[in-house]
């Protein structure tokens, strides 16, 4: 017996796809139209394909503080620094907590865990004061360092490290491997999939930051692309909407590409890490 296609399922899912594609499509199509047409309230859903050059043009567009290409680079290096930083310090601390018995081990574990309960909004003014005392305002370390602590990543690594079979550890010890050799040659390779997943999650997290950069950057040089775009649409002057839309598309692409490229690890990692 041949089954007829599940029309209801297709209808609902297409609606879902549209719910997310449509707004992005409007931005894409709008980017290729003239600012004047958009200002008249006449955005067309049909893009003008001969004006795709707007996406290159947008790179040198500036929000009065910094050009778009510069803000994209700042966002990229910030996201990279945060993702790598989180993975490195979390893997190291989880290794220490899982594989050693040292004084105050559980205290260290809980201190890291508690950071989950201290998001930036609950310590906003005093954090700014600390940053200012340390002269970290308007610096790249100031932008990234405070976002590198990660309870979630530490918990995930600890969970993986605890499950590593005893035989593997014994074998490494018999081979005369010290703890760091073991960490490097055994632990990291077995956690490859989780590291990939964490990289996606944290890269997206870093790229998408808004509140923190808003707080610690006052000059244009360290403006991230997210900050830059929000500034573009809140100015008083006439807004060149087509360039803003093109910039928005450019800003959306990197994290989306990272998620698409590593979807399988990302999904497994997300449902695992957030437990």
């Amino acid at each position: 017996m041949k089954k007829r296609p599940d029309f209801l399922a297709h209808a609902v899912l297409l609606l879902g796809v549209l719910l997310f594609m449509f707004p992005i499509w409007v931005a894409f199509a709008g980017a290729t139209q003239s600012a004047a047409a958009i200002n008249r309230g006449a955005i067309s859903l049909v893009p003008e394909f001969r004006k795709l050059g707007v996406f290159v043009q947008a790179l040198s567009f500036s929000n009065a503080n910094a050009p778009v290409w510069h803000m994209l680079l700042v966002s990229f290096f910030m996201a990279l620094a945060i993702a790598i930083g989180k993975i490195v310090i979390s893997a190291l601390s989880a290794f220490a907590i899982a594989f050693f018995r040292f004084p105050l081990r559980m205290v260290a574990f809980w201190l890291i865990f508690i950071t989950l309960m201290l998001p930036i909004v609950v310590r906003i003014v005093p954090t700014y004061a600390v940053m200012s005392d340390l002269h970290l305002i308007d610096t790249f370390p100031g932008l990234t360092l405070p976002l590198i602590a990660s309870a979630t990543a530490t918990l995930l690594f600890r969970q993986i490290f605890i499950a590593v079979p005893d035989e593997l550890v014994e074998a490494a010890k018999l081979d005369g491997a010290g703890p760091m050799r073991f960490f490097w040659d055994v632990l990291l390779p077995v956690s490859r999939a989780n590291i990939a997943a964490l990289f996606v999650i944290e890269f997206v997290y870093g790229w998408n930051q808004y509140l923190w950069p808003l707080l610690v950057t006052t000059k244009g040089g360290l403006n991230t692309i997210v900050i830059g775009i929000v500034q573009m649409i809140t100015g008083d002057q006439l807004i060149p909407w087509n360039l803003v839309m093109a910039t928005t598309i450019l800003a959306l692409l990197p994290p989306i590409l990272v998620v698409l490229a590593m979807q399988r690890w990302f999904v497994a990692g997300l449902t695992e890490a957030d437990k």
Partner: peptide, 30 residues
């Protein structure tokens, strides 16, 4: 875990970076 490595200096050094960031940017401001 049952199988462990010995020593406390190395693990202390390994958790130090995370704890340092945690103290300076989380606990102190809180």
């Amino acid at each position: 875990r049952k199988t462990l490595f010995r020593g406390w200096l190395l693990p202390a050094a390994l958790v130090a970076p995370q704890l340092l960031i945690t103290f300076v940017f989380f606990f102190w401001p809180a």
